[in-house]
Write a protein that binds this DNA or RNA. Sequence first.
DNA 1: GGATAACTGGAGAATTATCTCCAGTTATGG
DNA 2: CCATAACTGGAGATAATTCTCCAGTTATCC
Lengths: 215, 215
Amino acid sequence: MTASEKSTDRPLRADAERNKQRLIAAAQEVYAERGVEVTLDDIARHAGVGIGTAYRRFADHAELIDAAFESEVRQMIALAEAALTHQDPWEGVVQLLLTTGEHVARNRGLREVLVNRRLGRDRVAAAREQLTPAVNAVFTRAQQAGHLRDDLEVTDFPFIQMMIGATAEHSRDVAPELWRRYLTVLLDGLRPARNSPTPLAHRALDPQEFDQTMV
Amino acid sequence: MTASEKSTDRPLRADAERNKQRLIAAAQEVYAERGVEVTLDDIARHAGVGIGTAYRRFADHAELIDAAFESEVRQMIALAEAALTHQDPWEGVVQLLLTTGEHVARNRGLREVLVNRRLGRDRVAAAREQLTPAVNAVFTRAQQAGHLRDDLEVTDFPFIQMMIGATAEHSRDVAPELWRRYLTVLLDGLRPARNSPTPLAHRALDPQEFDQTMV
DNA sequence: GGATAACTGGAGAATTATCTCCAGTTATGG
DNA sequence: CCATAACTGGAGATAATTCTCCAGTTATCC
């Protein structure tokens, strides 16, 4: 009955609760840096507890991912809701894509969790499902205001975010902010019309830097 | 000395050469469908030969990838060169991104090989290096003709292709042509200016289809 | 068509990751 | 401060994958 205590059972003994929190914190750090495909051994070591302790608290890897990312995904929802309150609907879209980019560029595991349904469990799944309508609201508002091309539909928005995420993923180690450049290009493609290119938000890689990409 | 015969040594015995070609053909099929992270056992079985035979011909997985993708990457070079001969420089860019998209959408392994330096060996590496200048030529010509925003630099072009590849990857199983839609948006972001959105090249997913994405 | 070098294929060694088990230790409540 | 239920941590069972080895088979050359 490893990790089924949920909320119904008695609370954990103090030392157990402490170790559990350490594991979650360690998992968040390690996932952010190296993605979710790390071993539980690595996380346990990073948390300073034994492997057995990790498996006593979390039935398997998926359950730890669930615990580690629920709050991260909820943060993404909060970002979308904040973007919706932006006075200018278009700037709301820009802000949403910027803050999303900032998060996934810094957190490799988060990007994986957002994009892959098989990761995590019910808590992450629930958060992920709330994220979609929050994001849709931001885009739809801009579209109704005429600031966003109107041939787009709600199912397109996650793919827009995915494109940014892909550039962030590949440039992470060489130029962690490079994705901002491609976000600008994308945004220029999302507008109904425009007269000139929006100034790019980050310099291009030089050829040498580029060579270091994709390793 | 498993697979070091290269070109210098004597030719393989007829049956060995036949098995080698079978292995390469099987690898191309399996990689295209399931990516390069399949086991050599799977490929051997698919080719109808024993595992031992596979390892006698190819020192390791990387060497088989090298043999299987050299021609695929060379095809990509040919596509870029063909796009360069297009009368209209901008249509050359469009054609390049379209044909590239078609290839990577149909071949999961190809996308992985193009994007990840660690895959393959010297033959794929050499082809990959020739691909970059060929792609650059197509973009640079359009840029000099004033059809492409001129704040882009050559190191940006692979990232443009990467964004298309990311959308192709994620929608492959549900709507293998969906990437065309996002290519249109991206192209609209690449132009120096425009008055209205280019008509999208593919319908959007409906919410139900979207749910099937990302599994 | 026989001698032999080359090749075949699968059993299993080596490696790596996931997860279980339990002897020993520790927090807690009476 | 003691009894004991709860927890700890790591040794190892299990499983998946990569790669090696060699007894048996087959193509080729004379």
